[in-house]
Amino acid sequence: MKHRHLLGLKDYPADDIKSIIDTAFSFKEVLERPIKKVPSLNGKTIVNLFFENSTRTRISFELAQKRLSADTVNFSASTSSLKKGETFKDTAQNLEAMKIDAVVMRHPTPGAPLHLTKHIDSIVINAGDGTHEHPTQAILDMTSLYEKFGYLKGLKIAIIGDISHSRVALSNIYGLKTMGAEVTLCGPSTLIPPFIEDLGVKVNYNIDEVIDWADALNVLRIQRERMHGGFLPSIREYRNLFGITTERLSQHKKELVIMHPGPINRGVEIDSAVADSDQAIILNQVLNGVASRMAILYLLLGGKLGEGND
């Protein structure tokens, strides 16, 4: 692996992404076994440092760590304690003093994981930093797409919804572009970041055209608080213009893969029936999330595959 940490997918080498995906598939196989555990990271200690509540991501990482036989500690800090005076540096140095091997961090501020690498020697894995990146989510999304299609190069992926406030979108854009996929963004123009086309993606506000074009839709969660900043007039309007509804999909007679990073707002960005339909691979993404995170931890922490397997 070229990089010691996984902070984001910007400038992350295609070879390394491919290695992670390949490794994820071998771990997925482990996860299908009756005894779902390998000793690869025996004796390694990993801290899950979450400054923001994210039960799903934390559980996924925790499960990945347990399956690899690593020792894990969960550390839920609140950013309000940071505001009260305990500095980010204190938290980092406390961790370092505990002689750990890696930190998985979720933080509301862009750049916080990079900041952490300056204060500690352990390996840092970004589990989401504000509106910046969420690289492990993008890798599990790519793993799921690869599993479904058998390739990424030339695949047509549409990302639907609030791109501006989404770390998932940005990491997916970086990763998918690196792997040679085509990406189109579709969402309200107030929620498309400026100059995003410079990253080699297209923007199209017409959801029906986008559906016709795409091989897969990655549907993002729409947060109700976006209506306060004047980004969105109403959920009804959003659903009319961008909602992935049963009715809309029925007008497009085509095979389409539907993804969602969760948690789903059923009846908002996506209809319940669509989320539960055969074309949705949302639950598969969840299992691939564990396998992908196992692969990332394994490759970054230098475990040995096959060692003591069975």
Binding site: P110, D129, T131, H132, P193, P194, F195, D198, L199
Partner: peptide, 13 residues
Amino acid sequence: HEGIVSTNLGLPS
């Protein structure tokens, strides 16, 4: 500043 770099970094701009 709002521009391609702020979009890259995900920072409010």
